[in-house]
Structures are given as C-alpha cells and as structure tokens.
Design a protein around this nucleic acid. Structure first.
Length: 176
DNA sequence: TAGGCCATCTGGTCCT
DNA sequence: AGGACCAGATGGCCTA
C-alpha cells in the first residue's frame, strides 16, 4: 500500500508526475549500473586476453633466448638485449656462411642438389616454423651490412658474438 | 635512492 | 560486436 497514493483513484492524481519521474530516475540508475557492470566485465575480459597475449609474447621471447648463446651461460638477456642480440647473431651467422662460400668451392654433391628454401621464397615457413636446428643454407650473401665494426665481428661467431650483447643495432632497422 | 626492467591495466584503433 | 594489437601510465622489484 503506497502511503502517498491519493484517495481520488482515477490515476490522474496530481502526485503522479513526480512519482513517474522518480521511477524513471530509478530505472536510469539501474540501466547505468548495468552498463557499468557490462563495461566492467568487458574490460576484465580484455585485460585477461591482453595478459595472455603478453604471456605468449614472452614465451616466444624465451624460446628465442634459449637458442642464443650467452656468456656466461646463466645470464638472462633482457627483452631488448634479446632482440638486438638475435639481430646481430643472425647477421654473424649469415656472414660466416657468406665467407665460407667465398673461400670453399661447393662440394660436388651440392652441385645440382635442390636448393633449400630461402627466406625470400618461403617467407611463411620462415616466419612461422623455422627450426633453429635446420637453418637455411641460403642466407643472403648480399644480406645486411655489418651491424658492428669489422673488428668487433670478424666472421667467427663463437668469438665475436661475445661482444654482441651491448653493440649498437645494425643498419637498416636500428634496434634501439 | 635513482634508474632499469617488468607485469599489468587501460583506452584507442584496426580488423574480421 | 568482439578480438587483436598497440602505446602510455602505473606500481613493484632489484641493483648499483
């Protein structure tokens, strides 16, 4: 029983507009609260996805770290160091191949053999499933020019990579 | 204590 | 509409 209900009973009582306003206000508050919780739950879900995405990114970065030599062995490279090091490491390896191909004539068995996929010919597989244990032999001989000074790198990775960690990024796309 | 690194949250933008 | 991606903000942890 509403105490404020007038006794006239025809529904057009003078107090009705105020009551209607009050109800509308309550409805709007309910809608806003609903909207707020909806937005909130969407945000929470988005945060969850973002966290997941970053975890995947970090896992990939860990995989990359695991195939890079570090000195000493237990050193953990930071993210930026990992990327720079990988860049320089790849450069050193391709440079090593290039020089090896220059110095050594290819063995007869290699002549006429099907060329392994080059990065250019199969970009998809290189990006998605390249195995560190089976690198392409076709690293571009005209690849990146030296990412470091020639004294720093020479062409022997085992020794020269020691100094790579802190080196400035190479040409083209400076990884700073 | 300052500075570097990192994880997380957040809002904006683009894509499907 | 919803998800992916991105960049800025923030706070915690660690080290010199």
């Amino acid at each position: 029983m509403p105490a404020e209900a007038p006794s006239s009973g025809d529904g057009a009582e003078p107090g009705a507009p105020r009551e209607r306003r009050r109800r509308r206000g309550r409805a709007r508050a309910r809608t806003e609260a609903l909207l707020h919780t909806l937005k909130r739950s969407r945000r929470v879900k988005a945060n969850d996805r973002e966290r997941n995405r970053m975890h995947h990114l970090n896992a990939a970065l860990d995989e990359l770290r695991s195939v890079l030599p570090t000195f000493p062995d237990d050193t953990k490279l930071t993210k930026i160091e990992t990327l720079r090091f990988a860049y320089n490491y790849i450069w050193a390896l391709s440079e090593t191949l290039r020089l090896a191909e220059q110095c050594l004539p290819p063995p007869p068995a290699f002549r006429g053999a099907a060329a392994p996929p080059s990065p250019g010919s199969d970009a998809g597989s290189w990006l998605s499933s390249a195995s560190p244990s089976a690198p392409s032999l076709c690293a571009s001989a005209s690849g990146p020019s030296s990412p470091a000074t020639s004294e720093d790198c020479a062409y022997a990775p085992a020794d020269s990579l020691r100094g790579f960690r802190g080196l400035p990024a190479g040409p083209g796309a400076p990884l700073r």
